[in-house]
Structure formats: C-alpha cells, structure tokens
Computed example of a mutant assay.
Amino acid sequence: MCENAAVTSTDGQQSPPPAPVVPLTDAWLVIPLFNEAQVVRGVIEEARRVFPLVVAVDDGSRDDSAAQAAAGGAVVVRHPLNLGQGAALQTGITYVLERTDANFVVTFDADGQHSVADAAAMVQAARDEDLAFVLGSRFLQGPSPVGWLKRLVLKTAAVAASHTTGMHLTDAHNGLRVIRRDAAARLDLRQNRMAHASEIIRQLGATGLPWREFPVHIAYTDYSKGKGQSLWNSINILVDLLFS
C-alpha cells in the first residue's frame, strides 16, 4: 500500500491520508552513548525520520557502538575514556553550539526508551510558547510503569530539585529535554555521573528563562530491563542526591 494512501473505514468512509512527516532541521539530537551497540543504530535510524541531525557522543564504549551509530547516520564524537553521561551531554551540546546554527538541542537516550513523537511535540511546544527549555516528565499524565523504588527515588529527586531551584517539578531525572540555543549556551556541566541531571536542572533554572514540563512516555523494554538499568539508576540517583 502506498504510504500516503487514504484509509477506508468499516462504514465505507475514506479518511484523508496521514500528513507527511516534516523533518525538523533546526534541532539536533544529542545522544550520549556507552555500550549500546545492540540497539543504537535502530534508535538513530528511527529518530532521523523526524530529526535528521544527530550527534552521538561515544563515551569510551568497549563495543562497536560508535560504528553502529555512524551506520545509523549520526555524526559521532568519541571520548577515548568513559567520562560519564554528564560529560557526554556537555560534549554533544558544545558540538551543536560550535559547529551548527541550530535553534534547539534535544537530549535523547540511546537505548530506545524515548519517544521521537514526544521529542517532536516538545520542540513544537518550545516554538509555539516561546520556551527556552521543555523538560519531559513521565508523571504528568496517568500511571507510569516505574517500580516503587525508582518512583520513590525520582519523586524525592523532584522534591529536592524543586526546593533548590524554585521550579515546580514532577520528574527531575528525565533524559528527554528540549533546550533552546540561548539556554544551552549557559550550561557548563561538571557532574559526570547521575548527578548531572540535577545539575542541568539547577543551571537551567538559574537562567530565569521561560520553561515547562511536558508529558512523555518511557518504554521500559526487555533490553533495558535486562541491563538492570532501572534498579541501578535508582541507587545511583540516591547516592548522588546524598553526596553531590
């Protein structure tokens, strides 16, 4: 069937064909990358249908993540050693600011948990509402498939971030963010482990620029669960909240 063909419903009525996807050429995806060779090519290929401009920062992977990201169509920047996700994000943001004239940076995970449609809707919200940054939240609409331990830690992190920044947050550790160029230029991330997520919130909040949260969906796949990501992220967030 032709991709843009009209669809006939059960009552014989034809609905118009879906609108063609319009690539977002004023936004770059920044994808921190560490040992995700199994999935990253597919993640990037899917994302590039909407976001053709992608920079993947390979943070000292021990597998062929960098090659897979390049095969998917991303620009690849490499750290020779594993420096942490915060460092990878800062490298990617710096690349976009110094090498492109993009209006927006979109931080996006490599493991397939983030929704491209959510990211595109967040960019549109930033444009329509003249927002400097839009933060994804998995807790704004309906239940989220998050275990009780991680939910508790994330809620604690959101309360702590709200207290320190004066921003009312429901999800301070969501990796899907849209950041306008002027706000991105004010970021100087020094925390490289999970504490970088709180650091981003603090630095963005300090700009005083307009922002909001946006409801997003997180796909907790068999792949990500198999890596034990949910439990370890919860523990790492808790440790960094206590000692950073």
Rank of each mutant, 00 (worst) to 15 (best):
K155W: 12
F139R: 11
K155Q: 11
Q141Y: 01
G142V: 02
L140C: 10
W148L: 13
L135A: 11
A161R: 00
K150F: 05
S162P: 09
R151W: 13
R151S: 15
G142A: 01
G142R: 00
L154G: 06
T170I: 09
P143Y: 00
D171P: 04
A172L: 10
F139T: 07
V159G: 03
T156F: 03
A132L: 08
M167K: 07
A132R: 07
A132S: 15
L135R: 01
P143T: 04
K150D: 11
R138S: 09
F133D: 08
F139A: 04
A158Y: 03
L135C: 09
N174L: 08
S137L: 01
P145I: 00
M167G: 11
V159H: 08
A132N: 13
R151I: 07
F139D: 03
G166R: 00
K155C: 03
K155P: 07
D171C: 10
L135Q: 07
F139G: 03
N174H: 12
H173G: 10
L169Y: 05
T165S: 11
L169F: 12
S137A: 06
S137R: 01
L135M: 11
H168A: 14
L131E: 04
T170P: 06
A161C: 07
N174W: 07
A157W: 03
S137H: 08
D171I: 03
V159F: 08
T170C: 12
G166Y: 06
D171G: 09
P145E: 00
R138D: 05
L131M: 08
G136T: 13
V134G: 00
L152G: 08
F139P: 02
Q141R: 05
V159I: 12
H173D: 14
A157H: 12
T170K: 04
H168I: 11
L131N: 09
L135W: 02
K150S: 10
H173A: 15
P143S: 03
V153G: 05
T170G: 13
Q141D: 12
V146S: 01
L154E: 14
H168N: 14
L140D: 09
G136M: 08
V153F: 02
R138I: 11
V134D: 00
K155Y: 10
R138C: 08
G147I: 10
H168W: 12
A160Y: 01
G142M: 00
Q141S: 12
T164C: 07
H168G: 10
L140Y: 06
A172W: 09
V153W: 01
L131I: 08
A161H: 01
M167D: 06
K150T: 10
T165W: 02
L149T: 10
G166M: 04
V134F: 01
S144A: 14
A132P: 15
A157V: 14
S162Q: 06
V153D: 04
S144W: 02
L140A: 09
W148M: 12
L135E: 07
H173M: 14
L131A: 11
G136Q: 06
A157I: 02
T165G: 06
Q141I: 09
G142N: 00
A160D: 01
S162F: 04
L152Q: 04
H173C: 15
G166H: 06
T170E: 13
T156L: 13
S137M: 05
V146I: 10
T165Q: 05
L131K: 05
L152Y: 08
L135S: 12
W148V: 15
Q141V: 15
T170S: 15
